[in-house]
Design a protein around this nucleic acid. Structure first.
Lengths: 103, 103
DNA sequence: CAGATCTATAATAACATGAGCATATGAGCA
DNA sequence: TGCTCATATGCTCATGTTATTATAGATCTG
């Protein structure tokens, strides 16, 4: 699943779509309006996001409303969390260096 | 930069390499030993990780030692942080629902 | 210098991705 | 039913990715 999540988010258009949907649900057409791409291209980006379970599309009358899902982002956060100690450790080391320099 | 970070991490071999290097620095050869891939293939994966600034390679005598960098992972964390409120909000809503059901 | 070791790179093949245009599908409405 | 709006999908082109094999380059060692 992480493969699909990272891969989906590696595209700036798709990250921008995620950003939009974090604020509000939007129909496909409304999403399209935010980019200089064809409806076809956006539809495919939405496919990618949906396959990665990052978004869901549901029919509302004539339209399809897109909403952001939480699962993959949480999973991503957990993966990243395992490395926090790594970079925080490195920050601490840096802090110590700074402190030493002050003395 | 996020493009490159996400893209680099979308491959399980490369995530595994990052996992290895979080624990210790390793020469290219040592990295190769951990996978069923040719040295050439690993070298290219290391290229991808290096271009994304996720790792650095430095020469130590005859070998090239790979080490993990902190920058892109931190950047990733910051990006993700912007969405934390989103999924935590959703968790809170879930908690409330659970609480309501208990009553 | 010659040979061994470690790593990178060129050439190639198979497959995936992302864009556009044109068209199909599905829902609502007259 | 027939028309229209919203969205998806087939086709195609260009480009990128990942792997392999074979080979080149860099460094140590005798």
């Amino acid at each position: 699943m992480l493969d699909a999540t990272f891969s989906a988010l590696s595209d700036p258009t798709r990250r921008a779509i995620v950003g939009l949907l974090a604020n509000q649900e939007l129909s496909v057409g409304k999403v399209v309006e935010n980019f200089g791409l064809t409806q076809s291209a956006i539809s495919r980006h939405l496919d990618v996001l949906e396959n990665a379970r990052l978004i869901e599309r549901r029919r509302v009358g004539q339209r399809r409303v897109c909403s952001l899902s939480t699962g993959p982002l949480q999973e991503l956060s957990e993966w990243l969390e395992a490395y926090r100690r790594f970079w925080e450790g490195s920050l601490k080391r840096l802090d110590k260096t700074m402190a030493r320099k002050k003395r």
